[in-house]
Design a protein around this nucleic acid. Structure first.
Lengths: 212, 212
DNA sequence: GTGCGATGTATCGGTCCGATACATCGCGGT
DNA sequence: ACCGCGATGTATCGGACCGATACATCGCAC
């Protein structure tokens, strides 16, 4: 998962580790806390060994800015290679079971702008299926096994069930949107999608936030 | 986390691994998929080494049922020890930072019936604080960094923000409930809380499910 | 009588996290 | 003039947990 995320981010611009972590946190903030350096650096090492990225010590700007005042230590900048881009495309397209768990889905979704529509649809439907299964499991427990569990555990299940139902509805909306319209709806018209390299041209609101 | 969950479950009844996993899945189904044997068995080993639990090969029922027809292979039953119960109480009471992440909070919450009210309150408030922080982070990104991100990433953040706001509201409700009333509300009167060993006597509905 | 899904125990490699260590930079305070 | 301190920055280590895999038994339906 981390591999995919790193490859995806480096495709937008070369970065060093610290920056990468910040961008990662910004992009995936909705689904996970903050990725640890204990994962990041080893993974970067692995990616470099595989040839998907290259690392290079940072050069002092235009060789004119602050020339050699303080020796400019550290700062390794990582750049994606052509093979790395291929690898990314391959990872994005092929969906394993881990593509549909919370983290995996989040990461894939975060790079939907670089994913073709067919794949987007496949992933959204796979995720929906998975959440529906979880939902059914929770309904079972709340129905059949309710008297075996204490009030707090039941409340936890109810909250989880609620979240499942809500996510299914969200996915339905996205799927419908994906099938006919395009890109996700922007509830506040005015600011439209990504910049330049965006795969899916931003289209104004199709779906609306609830509260009928 | 697994340690806490196992200790908690074994406090209700002795069990063997497979059963333990099923109960774990039922109790924690709302927050995590299903715990792996690759974690379960090593942890059981660890708990036994520490003296929190004991393991024993299963005895054939009353020494009368199906005496020795098929030799009765395997099936190791784990029982919690007095030290294990102490350990559980200690783990429940002391709250580290991991107590407030998704999994940690879920496990603690699942054993609220065995937790005193002061600790429950402390944990609920800690969790709320954490989610509020995550919420602020998402609001920041959606506000300040919106134009740097593509439409899909933004949609993901919005969904995450929504989930945060919802969870904060849920927690508020539970906290209010905890402060004056007792146990979580039961939206469907008729089935009331746990059985016998339940710490918090079930009290009929205080809060209501929304949909005004 | 046989295959097959549920029950049951167990290990191995790999991913990722949390704690920790260490160095530099720019800024405000005194 | 100096100091501390928070942000920037790279890096490792032990441990928790997962997913795949292996293997054996039980009961039941075909």
């Amino acid at each position: 998962m981390l591999e995919l995320a790193i490859l995806g981010l480096l495709q937008e611009a070369p970065m060093h580790g610290y920056e990468l972590r910040k961008e990662l946190t910004a992009k995936l903030g909705a689904i996970r806390a903050a990725i640890s350096y204990g994962s990041l650096y080893p993974t970067l090492r692995r990616l470099q060994a595989a040839g998907w990225i290259t690392e290079a010590a940072e050069a002092p700007a235009t060789a004119e800015e602050v020339p050699a005042l303080t020796s400019r230590r550290g700062r390794v900048v990582y750049t994606i290679t052509a093979e790395g881009k291929e690898r990314f495309a391959q990872l994005i397209a092929q969906a394993g079971p881990e593509t549909y768990d919370d983290t995996g889905f989040g990461v894939h979704f975060a790079f939907f702008a670089r994913t073709d529509q067919a794949t987007r649809l496949r992933i959204l439907e796979g995720r929906r299926r998975k959440i529906e299964e979880r939902r059914e499991g929770l309904r079972d427990v709340l129905g059949r096994a309710a008297e075996r569990l204490d009030a707090y555990t039941l409340e936890l299940q109810r909250h989880g069930l609620d979240a499942c139902e809500r996510e299914v509805r969200w996915l339905e909306e996205l799927i419908a949107n994906e099938r006919s319209g395009r890109a996700p709806a922007d509830p506040r018209p005015g600011t439209a999608g990504g910049r330049g390299d965006n795969d899916s041209p931003p289209t104004p609101g199709t779906s609306r936030k609830e509260r009928p």
